[in-house]
Deep mutational scan, measured.
Amino acid sequence: TEHYTFHTEEQAQRAAKKFKKQGLPVTIHEKNGKFTLQVN
Protein backbone atom coordinates (compact mmCIF):
# COMPACT_ATOMS: atom_id res chain seq x y z
CA THR A 1 0.00 0.00 0.00
CA GLU A 2 1.38 3.39 -0.98
CA HIS A 3 0.20 6.82 0.09
CA TYR A 4 0.56 10.13 -1.72
CA THR A 5 -0.53 13.48 -0.32
CA PHE A 6 -1.93 16.32 -2.41
CA HIS A 7 -2.95 19.86 -1.53
CA THR A 8 -5.99 19.93 -3.79
CA GLU A 9 -8.64 17.39 -4.68
CA GLU A 10 -8.02 18.11 -8.37
CA GLN A 11 -4.41 16.94 -8.08
CA ALA A 12 -5.49 13.81 -6.22
CA GLN A 13 -8.15 12.98 -8.81
CA ARG A 14 -5.69 13.44 -11.65
CA ALA A 15 -3.20 11.08 -10.02
CA ALA A 16 -5.98 8.60 -9.27
CA LYS A 17 -6.86 8.43 -12.96
CA LYS A 18 -3.29 7.44 -13.83
CA PHE A 19 -3.31 4.62 -11.30
CA LYS A 20 -6.74 3.43 -12.38
CA LYS A 21 -5.51 3.23 -15.98
CA GLN A 22 -2.91 0.75 -14.71
CA GLY A 23 -5.72 -1.26 -13.14
CA LEU A 24 -4.80 -0.39 -9.55
CA PRO A 25 -7.43 0.16 -6.86
CA VAL A 26 -7.31 3.73 -5.59
CA THR A 27 -9.05 5.51 -2.73
CA ILE A 28 -8.90 9.19 -1.79
CA HIS A 29 -9.19 10.41 1.78
CA GLU A 30 -9.58 14.05 2.79
CA LYS A 31 -7.92 14.99 6.07
CA ASN A 32 -7.11 18.41 7.50
CA GLY A 33 -7.61 20.03 4.11
CA LYS A 34 -5.20 17.67 2.39
CA PHE A 35 -6.02 14.75 0.15
CA THR A 36 -4.35 11.41 0.63
CA LEU A 37 -4.32 9.01 -2.27
CA GLN A 38 -4.05 5.38 -1.23
CA VAL A 39 -2.93 2.84 -3.81
CA ASN A 40 -3.32 -0.81 -2.84
Rank of each mutant, 00 (worst) to 15 (best):
T5L: 09
P25T: 15
A16Q: 04
K21G: 07
F6I: 01
H7N: 13
T36F: 14
Q13F: 09
G33P: 01
K34G: 07
H3P: 08
G33Q: 03
G33I: 00
G33A: 02
V39I: 12
A16D: 00
E9V: 12
L37S: 01
I28K: 01
Q22P: 03
A15F: 09
Q22L: 14
K18L: 11
K18H: 12
T27A: 07
F35L: 03
T27V: 10
H29V: 14
E9F: 15
P25N: 15
A15K: 04
I28M: 05
V39W: 07
N32L: 05
A16H: 02
F19G: 00
T36V: 15
I28Y: 03
A16E: 03
I28A: 01
V26L: 04
L37Q: 01
Q38W: 13
R14G: 04
T8W: 03
L24Y: 10
L37E: 00
T5I: 12
E9K: 14
N40Y: 12
T36W: 14
T36A: 06
R14I: 10
T8F: 04
H7M: 11
G33W: 01
K31N: 11
Q38C: 15
L37T: 02
K34N: 06
F35W: 15
G33Y: 02
Q22H: 09
Q22N: 07
K31M: 11
R14L: 10
Y4C: 13
E9T: 05
F35Y: 11
F19R: 01
A16V: 05
F6V: 01
K17T: 10
E9P: 06
K20L: 14
P25Q: 15
F6H: 02
F19H: 02
G23K: 03
V26I: 06
E30M: 10
T1A: 10
L37Y: 02
E2N: 12
A12T: 02
T8L: 04
E30H: 10
N40Q: 11
Q13D: 04
T8S: 09
K21I: 09
Q22Y: 11
H3M: 13
E2P: 09
N32I: 01
H7S: 12
F35N: 01
Y4M: 08
E10T: 06
K21P: 02
T1L: 12
T27K: 07
E10W: 12
A16L: 08
E2C: 15
K17F: 07
F35A: 02
K21F: 07
T27L: 07
E30Y: 14
F6Y: 10
H7K: 10
K31E: 13
Y4F: 09
T5E: 09
L24I: 14
L37W: 02
R14Q: 11
E30F: 14
N32F: 06
V39H: 03
N40G: 14
K20Y: 08
F19Q: 00
V26W: 04
F35D: 01
G33F: 02
K20E: 11
T5Q: 07
R14N: 09
Q38V: 15
T27D: 05
Q22A: 12
H29T: 14
H3Y: 15
L24K: 06
Q22G: 05
H7G: 09
E9I: 15
K34H: 10
V26M: 03
K34I: 14
Q22M: 14
K31D: 10
L37I: 11
K34M: 13
F19I: 05
Q11H: 06
A16C: 10
K21L: 12
N40W: 13
H7Q: 12
E10M: 09
E2S: 12
T1P: 10
A12M: 04
T1H: 13
E9M: 15
A16M: 08
A15R: 03
E30A: 08
Q22F: 12
E10S: 07
F35H: 03
Y4H: 06
T8V: 03
E10P: 05
T1Q: 10
K34Q: 10
K18S: 07
N40V: 12
T1R: 11
A15M: 09
E30T: 06
Q22V: 08
N40S: 11
E30L: 09
A12F: 01
Q38P: 01
E30Q: 09
L37D: 01
N32Y: 05
A16K: 03
P25I: 15
